[in-house]
């Protein structure tokens, strides 16, 4: 049997996407391509335009301008044929309180001509024991997993997850991550949005960092961190009196330091080797009669990439 050549089309492609709400530009010229089989993350602070962009991809909103192609198709008409190939999890969905988990799944299953058996979907999201429980008795994490199961029930070619772990406790979050990793292992294409850099780093093959409706960085998590030029971050806070003596030039000249940024009374240094930079830093402080009131180091993360690009933090940006 000869298999036809698989057309190398992207799972999702958008060009020049713009969406305004009055004076607010939610999406400001977005270009993206998500390849089949990858887990693609859109990382950005609240208000970066992630949800608006995803809802345009999902055919729930119309862009003011730009093009979207989903699984090689465009949104037109009722879009039912395309919807049958997609799995969608909205940021928050309140399923009817009085319905049982099994009944909700059976309802959503009925919309798809082909898909998973209810039992299979329950297993995927580890809700077998709750199959006959009413939705109102579920915890936040269990409700989120039910919502995930509804997105999976049609066995979609492309899965959209909009902030799948926002508001969940750490245990539920890890559980969701494991489910998504299981999907990745089966070669599903996933597009997820998040404002948790750990989530993007752990789950995504590629990450687009969004700010003010635009992609400001794109690559694998490793590439993005590497773009900082150094793998570690040293943060130091110096006591008030002596802080004037310390300048960015002084810090940048220290061995192994690749970047310097100031955040109030705190300095952030991107460094290649902590064991060389930190003694030099402490020496420089002592020379100027300054003392460090706080000194921390960590591996550079996507959060540091975001900060290096915008000067703001992801969470409270």
């Amino acid at each position: 049997m000869v298999l036809p050549l698989q057309k190398a089309e992207s799972a999702l492609r958008c060009r020049g996407l713009v969406k305004r709400y009055g004076d607010v530009v939610a999406v400001a010229g977005l270009d993206l391509a998500v390849e089949r089989g990858e887990c693609f993350g859109m990382l950005g602070p609240n208000g970066a335009g992630k949800t608006t962009a995803v809802e345009i991809f999902e055919g729930l909103r119309w862009p003011d301008s730009g093009e979207v192609e989903v699984l090689g198709d465009e949104w037109r008409g009722d879009g039912l044929a395309l919807r049958r190939r997609l799995g969608i999890q909205l940021q928050e969905t309140k399923f009817p309180d009085k319905l049982r988990v099994r009944e909700v799944l059976s309802l959503f299953r009925s919309f798809y001509p082909r898909g998973l058996a209810i039992a299979k979907a329950l297993t995927l999201v580890a809700l077998e024991e709750k199959a006959d429980a009413q939705v109102r008795t579920l915890s936040g994490g269990q409700k989120q997993r039910l919502s995930l199961a509804c997105a999976l029930i049609g066995d979609p070619e492309l899965l959209f997850l909009d902030e799948p772990t926002t508001g969940l406790d750490p245990q539920s979050r890890r559980q969701t991550w494991e489910i998504v990793e299981g999907l990745k292992a089966r070669g599903r294409t996933v597009l997820l949005t998040t404002h948790y850099m750990e989530e993007a780093a752990r789950l995504c093959d590629r990450v687009a960092i969004l700010d003010h409706g635009k992609v400001i960085a794109l690559g694998t998590p490793r590439e993005l961190v590497a773009s900082l030029g150094a793998e570690h971050v040293v943060e130091v806070t110096v006591d008030e009196g002596a802080s004037a003596a310390l300048t960015a030039e002084v810090l940048a000249a220290l061995p192994s330091v690749e970047g310097v940024a100031r955040e109030g009374g705190r300095w952030r240094l991107t460094v290649r080797e902590v064991h060389r930079a930190v003694p030099a830093l402490l020496g420089a402080l002592a020379e100027r009669g300054a003392t460090a009131t706080e000194l921390t180091t960590h591996h550079a993360s996507l959060e540091d990439v975001f900060m290096a690009l915008t000067g703001r933090r992801l969470r409270d940006a």
Binding site: K98, L99, E103, S106, S110, P113, G115, A117, K120
Partner: peptide
């Protein structure tokens, strides 16, 4: 992994209606 709907599978209109009926009868 994909499975076709079993014999007991109901159509979407039936399922949607059933969901409403269940909601109501479970609301004292």
């Amino acid at each position: 992994m994909p499975e076709h709907a079993g014999d007991d599978a109901r159509g979407p209109l039936t399922e949607l209606t059933l969901a409403r009926v269940r909601e109501l009868v479970r609301e004292p």
